[in-house]
């Protein structure tokens, strides 16, 4: 899974999708995940990073993660040819 390469994310959590013209805001965790996706990290890598850094159980994070990925998909922020 990969975030579209032309998507810009700033330190304030502001995201701009130049293909659609939409802008978004996200919280620090969302920012972290998007940056990891941007750097082509795999789901496993992202999960272990978050579990190491934050107080959260694996099950709980997994549920939130898939929900977040679905939101990214809905707003067309992921590479279209990617399969999950």
């Amino acid at each position: 899974m990969k975030i579209k390469q032309n998507i810009a994310i700033s330190d304030s959590g502001f995201i701009f999708n130049p293909t659609t013209g939409d802008s978004f805001s996200t919280n620090p965790i969302g920012q972290e995940i998007i940056k990891l996706l941007h750097n082509s990290k795999t789901e496993d890598e992202i999960r272990s990073f978050i579990l190491e850094t934050y107080q959260i159980s694996r099950d709980h994070f997994e549920k939130d993660y898939y929900d977040f990925i679905n939101v990214l998909k809905k707003y067309k922020l992921l590479e279209e040819n990617e399969k999950d």
């Binding site: 304030s12 502001f14 802008s23």
Partner: peptide, 11 residues
């Protein structure tokens, strides 16, 4: 500039 919109939106 988008930067301005970003500022008012996020800050």
């Amino acid at each position: 500039n988008l930067k301005e919109f970003e500022k008012i939106s996020t800050l």
